[in-house]
Nucleic acid binder design. Structure first.
Lengths: 153, 153
DNA sequence: AGCGCTCTTTTGAGTGACTCAAAAGATCAC
DNA sequence: GTGATCTTTTGAGTCACTCAAAAGAGCGCT
């Protein structure tokens, strides 16, 4: 049922290549985040619990921290979100759209080469390394629901 | 010595217009944030303490929350920042550059009309309301310091 | 100017994400 | 298999922020 882009064997190789040991917790977290991008540490813990009930919240924090450090995960900080989120899509500098109503998060590719977001008008002398862009919007479902509610009134 | 863009009398009027009472804490917080943009609640508390030692941390949280709600302040959520930041520049949809070394934050105007950041390639059907953009870079001072350190090695 | 209703601030406790540290446990090179 | 080393666990602690009730201040009204 899952739509994993990386089989477990690939994760094993990438963990080893990063100099990290292959553990059940790390594989489970990578699998879960591959299938459920933009999850918080708490969500990873909950999602992994059925298969790995012994995994502690602490370990999940260690895991996402370590895997982010070696580039196997990317940390996503969204405005108005209390907890950090993580995803397996790394090194492609994509951005995110979030529905302000339901909180749904989707990826948005950044057009490499054009990257208009990387050329701000004034940089205060700073050399720009990257741009973190979060679009806030309303998804079709929530917009329809809002419209329906308005018509009923 | 201060470079306030708004005299106190203006803040009084804007507070009253928003239906809020004029209190010493609110005026002090507005003054401080006008002079020290992108400050956290803790920084506001510290900066205001000399003039208003009785003001509690709780009150500062109330103040920035309430003033943000009525549009007198704007909340800024920066990646890798544990605390929310606030500024008096509202309603002009500007963005921010942050130095990844020293953490310095500067404003970046958004070119109204062109606003390339508001037209992502795919929106997943979402109607985009706004884009929150944070540029990460290195400020001249930190770059020079890095260069000097490299030459010494 | 003074009274009093209402909004603010204060005080105190509590939540939730995350960190630090030491001991128990698992991984992997040999 | 065995042991050194890395991970996980367990437990305590920090920090930003919230909730709630009582004390206090602002301001409309007379």
């Amino acid at each position: 049922m899952s739509t994993l882009t990386q089989p477990r064997a690939a994760w094993r190789d990438r963990l080893r290549a990063a100099g990290l040991r292959v553990t059940a917790g790390r594989l489970a977290a990578l699998d879960y985040l591959d299938d459920h991008p933009h999850s918080t540490a708490a969500e990873v813990l909950e999602g992994v619990a059925p298969a790995l009930p012994s995994l502690s919240a602490q370990s999940v924090h260690n895991i996402v921290h370590d895997l982010t450090a070696v580039g196997l995960l990317r940390r996503v900080d969204l405005p108005d979100s209390d907890a950090a989120r993580y995803e397996t899509r790394t090194h492609d500098n994509h951005h995110h759209v979030q529905c302000v109503v339901c909180g749904r998060i989707e990826d948005v590719d950044c057009v490499v080469g054009h990257a208009p977001c990387l050329t701000p008008s004034q940089t205060h002398g700073m050399r720009i390394l990257e741009a973190a862009v979060t679009f806030r919007g309303i998804c079709p479902e929530c917009e329809a629901r809002t419209r329906d509610a308005a018509q009923e009134g």
